[in-house]
Every structure is written in structure tokens, then in C-alpha cells.
């Protein structure tokens, strides 16, 4: 009876703990299709179950409260690992929802109306917890995406020294405003650091150039010129050349070269360096 001692559902859940856990693990394993080891799943479920017991009887209206701190951190950890391991959000949340069915099946022969009410509360509690899993999962995914795009920015914009006084930036992939901004700043800073008077932006690896990207390249070249260096753009592919002409982009008096080699030769010539083949006659 409600109000006298403990709630029935709590008693059921505590006394038939092993049975419930076993069925829960089995139900969760079915949705995860064997990608998590049984031992790991059991450990996770046991921890969750232990944290869940003290809050059974609540209707899950305040899952952000103090009482839920432990189960929240467990669920957050769970969905974070699931997100990193590449599970879908539904697969992650259904681990939690699976418990509902297990408990319903256990108590379906009981006709106690109080128990039914408790089950309703338990159901909405699990719903709230499942939603919480969903939210943390989405947040974890967003973190991963932000991390990766940051890494991408760092990885793909090296400034290399080709010769004394000649720097080059080989651009690869898709250019957007953020990346071009990084390239621009890195290149200009390297010009100051090394005192190089020539910079080459090589776009052989760039798949597409639109007006915005061209605008960024031009800005970089003009900024370099303002600082007293010369900037050459090299590696414009035939298709990209066509696009540039079709779009009516004017590169003005910025030097453009077909290949990085041409650009280097151009830079060396204006530096006053002559490259000649060594005399092979001995």
C-alpha cells in the first residue's frame, strides 16, 4: 500500500534485481546487435540500476535536480562513449527504454491499481532519463564535430619554406571563409618572422573556386603586398581557370602561374637566383 512503508515497485525492483538486470541486458544487447561486449553492457546496466533504485517512485519531473546527480553523470558518460563509438541516438536511448518493457512484463499479472500508478510514474521517469541521454548524445556529437573541424583547420594549412626568402602554402580541399582567414594570417605572420619577400599560394589541391574564395585569395595577395612582399598564386587547374573567367573574376596585377614549379622559378628570378644544371662532364 502506498504510504505504508515502501512502494511496491521499489520492493519488486530490489528483490528481483538479478532477474530484471539479466533481461534488461538481453534487451539492450538486442538493439546494440553485439557491438558491445556482454560484460561491459552488464557492468553499465548494473551501475545504472543501482543509481536508479533510490529515485524509483519519482515521476521524473525534475531530472535536473540534486537527487539525480549520480544517474545523470552515469548516463552522460554512457551516451558520450556511445557517441564516440558511432552509435545512433536511438540505439543509445533505447538502452534506457528497454528497462521499461522488462519491468512491465514482470508486473503484468499484477492487478494492483497502486502498482499501475507507480508504473506510470516509473515510465515517465524513464522517458525523462531517455531524453536526457538523447540530449547528452547530441551534445557529445557536436563537441566531436567542433573538435574535428578545428583539427582540420590546423592540419591543412602549413606554411613551408621553399627557398631562402620564398614561402609557400599548399592549399588542399575546400576553402571557406574561416580557413582562408587562417591561411591569410599564418602566411602574413610567417612573412614577418622569416623576412621572406615572396609567397606562393598553391591551389592545386583546391577543388572549387567561387567568387568568395577568389576574393579571399586576392585579399591575401594584396595584404602581402602592403607588407612589402610579393604573392603569387599557382596551380590553377584548367576547370578552375574556366570558372574564374566565366565568373568574371579579375586577378588584376597579381601574378598567377600554372604550376608551383613555375611560381618558384618566378620567385627565384626576381630574387636574382639563377638555377643551372651542374656540369656533368668530368
Amino acid at each position: 500500500m502506498v504510504g505504508v512503508g515502501e512502494r511496491r515497485l521499489v520492493v519488486v525492483l530490489r528483490e528481483r534485481r538479478d532477474e530484471v538486470l539479466e533481461q534488461w541486458v538481453r534487451a539492450a544487447a538486442a538493439t546494440l546487435r553485439g557491438r558491445v561486449t556482454a560484460a561491459e553492457l552488464e557492468r553499465e546496466s548494473r551501475e545504472l540500476y543501482t543509481a536508479l533504485l533510490p529515485v524509483v517512485g519519482d515521476n521524473g519531473r525534475d531530472v535536473s535536480g540534486e537527487r539525480y546527480a549520480e544517474i545523470r553523470s552515469l548516463l552522460a558518460e554512457l551516451s558520450r562513449t556511445r557517441a564516440r563509438a558511432g552509435y545512433t541516438p536511438s540505439e543509445t536511448a533505447s538502452s534506457v527504454f528497454a528497462l521499461k518493457r522488462v519491468v512491465f512484463e514482470l508486473t503484468e499479472h499484477d492487478a494492483d491499481p497502486d502498482l499501475f500508478r507507480e508504473l506510470m510514474d516509473f515510465s515517465s521517469l524513464l522517458d525523462a532519463l531517455g531524453l536526457f541521454t538523447f540530449e547528452t548524445f547530441a551534445r557529445a556529437r557536436e563537441e566531436i564535430i567542433a573538435e574535428q573541424s578545428e583539427q582540420l583547420l590546423e592540419l591543412t594549412t602549413p606554411v613551408v619554406k621553399l627557398w631562402e626568402g620564398v614561402l609557400a602554402v599548399p592549399l588542399v580541399g575546400t576553402l571557406d571563409s574561416a580557413r582562408t582567414q587562417v591561411v591569410m594570417e599564418k602566411l602574413l605572420e610567417s612573412l614577418v618572422e622569416t623576412g621572406a619577400e615572396h609567397a606562393i599560394i598553391d591551389i592545386t589541391g583546391v577543388l572549387a573556386v567561387d567568387t568568395q574564395v577568389a576574393q579571399h585569395l586576392l585579399k591575401t595577395a594584396f595584404a602581402a603586398r602592403l607588407m612589402g612582399a610579393e604573392c603569387t598564386i599557382s596551380g590553377i587547374r584548367p576547370q578552375i581557370a574556366q570558372t574564374i573567367v566565366a565568373l568574371g573574376i579579375e586577378f588584376g596585377d597579381i601574378t598567377t602561374k600554372a604550376s608551383l614549379a613555375d611560381a618558384l622559378r618566378h620567385a627565384l628570378r626576381s630574387e636574382g637566383v639563377e638555377v643551372v644544371a651542374a656540369d656533368r662532364v668530368r
Binding site: 594584396f222 595584404a223 607588407m227
Partner: peptide, 24 residues
């Protein structure tokens, strides 16, 4: 001219006309 200054001038759309520039 510092990189940040150069970028600002370009963003402002200012050209220095035929002023010569040098790194140092």
C-alpha cells in the same frame, strides 16, 4: 606593416596607391 594592419587595410578596401612597401 603588421599582418593585422595589412588585413585591416585590405578589408577597408584601401589601396596605398603607388606607395612602395617593404618588410623592414
Amino acid at each position: 606593416m603588421r599582418p593585422a594592419v595589412a588585413i585591416t587595410l585590405v578589408e577597408l578596401g584601401l589601396t596605398l596607391g603607388d606607395v612602395r612597401t617593404a618588410l623592414n
